[in-house]
Design a protein around this nucleic acid. Structure first.
Length: 581
DNA sequence: GCTACGAGCGCC
DNA sequence: AAAGGGCGCTCGTAGC
């Protein structure tokens, strides 16, 4: 039986999930779970009131559905700690926020209900409760309205589930649950390293601030203050402060030695960003030194997971900054090791597979890396020796081509990509030649772009639905044609689209499905994944059996899903005592 | 005081 | 004809 459930808890500007994280929020002395609504049409059941007055046993063995089930489940577990929910209660959970995201509706209850039922729900009642307790609500005479509001939320969650859950696959439901469980389990943090890091960064920030002349008059990172200071020094102000901006580089070349402001602002910004990350971590640590992070199932329209709730596990610096290595602070629980495994060039392998490049599949099956396979298939490399040793320059060019040109990038973009992805310095003219050569030698890929663009073009005036190898579909709503080209609505915003971009979305979404399949296989084999980042998994395994586990996990990582038959997968797998790249 | 938005920058 | 893509968080600023 399905029951929809929704909890209401005290919150104010300080006592909030945003500030405290779910765990510390629900354990805060001011936070009371004062209202719960449960609704089920099939059970003919409806309740709204205090959690203490509900007979929880009637839900034993049944399923709760909630919009943001992670939070409602946490409330339920908190009530169990408080002795309100019986200790031996067993229920399962489903999340309508995850479901509507996967079906390409807006994630919030408001947006989803509006799209699905054409009804606008007001969140005013909840907003009115900021800083108010249940007793306040009773005194103010809004308790009745609050109850109705609460019941309405579970009513909508129930009907969203009832209407849409048949469209959401079993596997995807399992991934939603997996995400919830994994994020709640969390990561273990080395407190000592964390505190040392905070100290180091404080120093760096103080030093940087000392180099900024307006530090007492204006915000340290104020572009206005910088412009004023430049005017006073009678020098031009840089048009951009971005590290990768040529204009900024030129400014620093000319004035950087005499005026270290720009460099100091950059240092301050970077150190502060990392400092804030560590602070979030520090504030949300649980008593056992673990941190339950946020992660959105289906956060991106392609289905990729995305970061959430103040600490994004998907964009931690790869290596140490200012002598502070965030990844090193993330450690296995005592008695455990990490096995870290990442898929090798997964998206580019998928592009080759999608475009029907059998010659490339053969090369990959022989065990060549994606870059070498590309050089052998399209750049005329035939020597028996490994390319990387025999001709490192050609290898780097092959790498740049594979990473940079599969999605329609032009010469100008390729100059930048070749630099950042493969460390190549090339001129725009050279880039133009490489782009042309690549397209000429990879007709299967350009054909894939055209095919996708034509399919999109045929959908002008309606939705474009792009099928994926896994059976899942990507949605592009209300396709339009303007003088600037084709466009569609994605995540509520109209974006420009073209063949190369669709190919990228297709590869990205398919790579995501590969990872999803792997996550479920790892779970079925009994492994605790503690994090995953697009093409990488971090698995916590007992130290005693770590070598066998590494082999087994590597095998699971490189097992091609049935729906991608013929695509050889490769992975790099290693054992570590901390998270690292 | 709040919200929206762009810049900047971290990642895959 | 040409077009890399996908995210989240912090800060500063502008507008209400």
């Amino acid at each position: 039986m399905i029951y929809a459930i929704d909890f209401e808890c005290y919150y104010d500007k300080k006592v909030s999930i945003t500030n405290l994280g779910i765990h510390h929020y629900l354990h805060h002395p001011d936070c009371s779970i004062y209202l719960v609504s449960v609704y089920s049409a099939e059970a003919g059941f409806s309740y709204v009131g205090k959690p203490e007055n509900l007979d929880w046993y009637q839900f034993y063995g049944h399923t709760f559905v909630a919009h943001n089930a992670r939070f409602d489940r946490a409330c339920f577990e908190r009530l169990r700690e408080l002795g309100i929910v019986p200790a031996d209660m067993q229920v399962s959970w489903e999340c309508t926020a995850d479901m509507v995201s996967a079906l390409s509706y807006g994630r919030s209850l408001k947006d989803a209900v509006e799209s699905v039922f054409g009804v606008i729900v007001s969140k005013d009642t909840r907003a009115d409760m900021c800083g108010k307790t249940w007793e306040d609500a009773v005194r103010l005479g809004i308790a009745q309205r609050l109850g109705e509001y609460c019941l309405k939320d579970s009513w909508y969650a129930y009907h969203l589930w009832n209407k849409l859950s048949p469209l959401w696959s079993e596997k995807e439901r399992c991934l939603s649950a997996h995400t919830r469980d994994m994020a709640d389990y969390g990561i273990c943090i080395d407190r000592k390293l964390l505190d040392e890091g905070l100290e180091k960064l404080t120093e760096v920030m103080l030093d940087a601030a000392d180099l900024i002349p307006w530090k007492d008059e204006a915000p340290l990172l104020s572009p206005k203050a910088l412009r004023n200071a430049c005017a006073q020094a009678d020098i031009p102000a840089p048009s951009s402060l971005a590290e990768d901006s040529p204009e900024c580089a030129e400014w620093e070349e000319k004035y950087g030695n005499q005026f270290s402001w720009v460099a100091a602002m950059r240092d301050y910004r970077k150190a502060n960003t990392l400092y804030k990350k560590l602070t979030t971590l520090r504030n949300q640590l649980r008593a056992d030194s673990t941190f339950a992070y946020g992660l959105k199932y289906f956060g991106a329209h392609t289905g990729r997971w995305s970061g959430d709730a103040g600490f994004n596990i998907q964009n931690m610096p790869r290596s140490s900054m200012f002598g502070v290595d965030l990844r090193k602070m993330i450690i296995p629980r005592p008695g455990y090791k990490y096995i870290i495994s990442d898929l090798a060039q997964i998206e580019n392998r998928i592009i080759a597979w999608l475009s029907g490049d059998n010659a490339m599949m053969d090369q990959l099956a022989l065990g060549y890396s994606m870059y070498e396979a590309h050089a052998r298939a399209t750049m005329g490399y035939t020597a028996p020796e490994p390319l990387k040793q025999k001709n490192p320059d050609l290898y780097r060019l092959a790498k740049a081509r594979v990473l940079g040109l599969g999605y329609g990038a032009g010469a100008a973009v390729f100059v930048r990509i070749a630099k950042t992805l493969a460390g190549l310095d090339i001129t725009p003219q050279q880039a133009q030649r490489v782009v042309s050569e690549f397209r000429a030698a990879n007709r299967l890929i350009t054909a894939l772009w055209s095919k996708l663009e034509m399919a999109l073009s045929a959908s002008v005036g309606k939705d474009f639905i792009m099928p994926l190898p896994s059976g899942r579909k990507l949605y592009y709503h209300n396709v339009g044609r303007t003088p600037k080209g084709l466009s569609a609505i994605v995540q509520g915003k109209r974006i420009n689209l073209f063949g190369g971009k669709l190919a990228e979305n297709l590869a990205s979404a398919t790579a995501r499905d590969v990872l999803g399949e792997i996550l479920l296989n790892l779970e079925a084999a009994g492994y605790q994944v503690v994090m995953h980042i697009h093409d990488e998994v971090v698995v916590e395994v007992p130290a005693a059996n770590v070598d066998n586990a590494a082999l087994d996990i590597h095998r699971i990582m490189t097992t091609t899903p049935a729906w991608l038959e013929g695509l050889p997968l490769a992975a790099e797998t290693f054992i570590s005592d901390h998270y690292t790249k």
